[in-house]
Amino acid sequence: MNSNEISEKFRNAGVTVAPDRIEKLMENYKKFSVPQNEVERTVMRTLANENGIDITALYTKTVKIGDLKSEDEWVTLMAKVVQLWDNDHEAVSQVGLIGDETGIVKITVWKKAEIPLLLEEGKSYLFKNLVTNKYLDRIQVAATPNTEIEEIKEDIQAKGKEVTLSGAIVDVINGSGLIKRCPECKRALVKGACGNHGKVEGIYDLRLKAVLDDGKAAYSILAQAEIVTKLTGITVDKAKEMATEALDQSVVNVEIVKKVIGRYFTFKCAPIDTNYLVKEIIEVI
């Protein structure tokens, strides 16, 4: 990196540093025969401290999700929140999936990151300084205290590497059907309470967790309300009605089970960890 490139990095982080000031600092190290990258690092650290900015802000790269490879890298992403999951970990504020046109990746927003906003499904954000890590060989990203997240106006198209799966649904997993989510963080409520926000007035939602099996392999699939409605004809409103009438939320699940168990489907899915998120129904037999 030359002084101009370093200057550019600072400009990206919102700080103006003249290239000749950078050159001067670099000059100081010349006589010590320090490796060039160590010189760059030291100079940048010095300038970052002077300007009161975090060094990681300078090392971050704006990348596409499909290019994420190595762990412990600082990256900046523009991505859409594809799905938020239930999260039972005290230290975690939110967990889910974000995607851009090149892929989908799991994101964990740690509580200690103190991100002032809560991510919402379907909204796009600029994620500054996420850190990458690997779990079971799969890359993930996390928001830490160095991370900043802001909502953006662009609608990022989240396209995972989609796969087509065909088979019969052989099981519907607990947690399917009508659920309530926290109005603030969208977590599924457990006994009317959110892990983050305690007792709240929940918002109804529909979802399906099921097993699609083609006789050769079994796949864990997830479907959001829109897909559940297409598969079963049950809308969130209809499900609410059913539950109110029966004074029992589980009637919805029973009805979903009747509609899907033992039937053949072809789905276009986005692979996520060990699950497949249904994006599109291609065929129903």
Binding site: L136, V170, A218, Y219, S220, D273
Partner: peptide, 12 residues
């Protein structure tokens, strides 16, 4: 493979 969803396939 640890990524694989652990469940016995329903044989035909």
């Amino acid at each position: 493979n640890p990524q694989k969803f652990e469940r016995e396939t329903a044989k035909r």
